[in-house]
Design a protein around this nucleic acid. Structure first.
Lengths: 228, 228
DNA sequence: GTCTATAGTAAGATAGAC
DNA sequence: GTCTATCTTACTATAGAC
């Protein structure tokens, strides 16, 4: 259990009484990290305007001046924090997408895929972040565009590629793969997502979720699957 | 051009020099209406927390004390204004729903219906209101539940009834009408709505909109229409 | 880089005259 | 019911010591 000096001005001594000087760079980035975590929690709980820099400094254990040295202003802090966490969030969805074009049973693969997406996207922390971004879009349009673009690039993108290939192989008949992907998402993940957007307390157990995803995939395949 | 005394303490005289005393009830409800309009504009522009009661009083032309006499607090004002406008908003969608079960061509009727929905729901003012409600759901969960319930009751509801009837008549094969409606919405209106939610500047011209709606309806019918 | 202390401002809400 | 004037509080941001 190493001593972690929290910025105290007093020297910290090791077992032999020798002062342990914290690496200033590490100390700074630890504080930076603490500020980011505290700010995210505060912004998620209060929204941008009601969040107070005072509360963020209290949560993070640093002083107000330090926060301003690092981030300059409340706006810049918000953009850094929220813009920084979005790619992390979407990165979780990427591994699910691999190898769809080569799956033995397309229906099973699509149900698995959409169910995995839904389980992640419906998580309360991600739903809260989504509501925050949507609610602040007039003030921070960059974040809205970023969120939408990430979703398109990291989720829809691979699916579009897979459908295009399956179309070429004659397995699917998809004249507009881009639109088809958006329809699939709307008819599967979009259904419980809409409910959770407006009713945070709404819960979908795994069985219900898989039933809805399977029904949406069947809807999709009824139109786009060829006989082959 | 009738004189409309805006609460001035000086008497207003008619053409014969006779004081025109404004009906106090009417004057009060005119002010109430002015406050509501000003508050809605301010809340839409700034969000709940950043909206200032000072700005609302300026916009409405009444004093701060009057606003508090009428609505008691900022929270109550917000609930009254937003909760009051939601039914009005959804009422616009109701007439579109009538007479679907008896339509001669179901596909045409559904394309017309979803396109009409989309044109209303994508309007910037309604999209802004939607973002406001979503962004403030942690603070005002009532509004989220109200929005979702209105959408379900006034839009999905009639469609569920129509699909149930068409199922009984053998025109459709819809084992779960409620889910089917949500899928149809997700695959039609939901597609451009998602884009507009995150990119307010995104615009869909009528031709593009109808193409997307028609494609979504075809998707729906490929699964749920019987041969009959 | 980090802190304490504070400047300067604007917010929500109310008192009291009319 | 309505207004003007004001109370109290909390906010963002900064100055200056270390």
């Amino acid at each position: 259990m190493a001593a972690e000096p929290a910025g105290s001005s007093k020297d910290v001594l090791d077992a032999d009484g020798i002062p342990v000087l914290p690496d200033p760079a590490d100390a700074a980035s630890r504080k930076r990290r603490a500020i980011i975590d505290a700010a995210l929690a505060e912004f998620l709980a209060e929204g941008y305007s009601a969040a107070s820099m005072e509360a963020i400094t209290s949560r993070s254990g640093v002083s107000k001046a330090t926060v301003y040295k690092h981030f300059g202003s409340k706006e810049r802090l918000f953009l850094a924090v929220v813009g920084g966490v979005l790619p992390t969030t979407y990165a979780e969805l990427e591994p699910v997408n691999s190898g769809l074009a080569g799956a033995p049973d397309l229906r099973t693969a699509l149900v698995r895929l959409t169910t995995a997406w839904a389980r992640i996207l419906l998580r309360p922390d991600i739903m809260s972040l989504r509501r925050l971004v949507i609610g602040e879009i007039d003030r921070f349009p960059q974040l809205g565009r970023l969120w939408y673009r990430l979703g398109r690039d990291m989720n829809d993108g691979p699916l579009v590629a897979a459908f295009t290939e399956l179309h070429a192989r004659g397995v699917l008949d998809v004249p507009d793969p881009d639109l088809a992907v958006r329809q699939l998402v709307g008819a599967t993940v979009g259904v419980p997502q809409l409910a959770c957007t407006f009713s945070p307390e709404a819960a979908f157990d795994d069985a219900e979720l898989e039933r809805v995803m399977a029904s949406g995939v069947d809807l999709f395949l009824a139109r786009y699957a060829t006989g082959a």
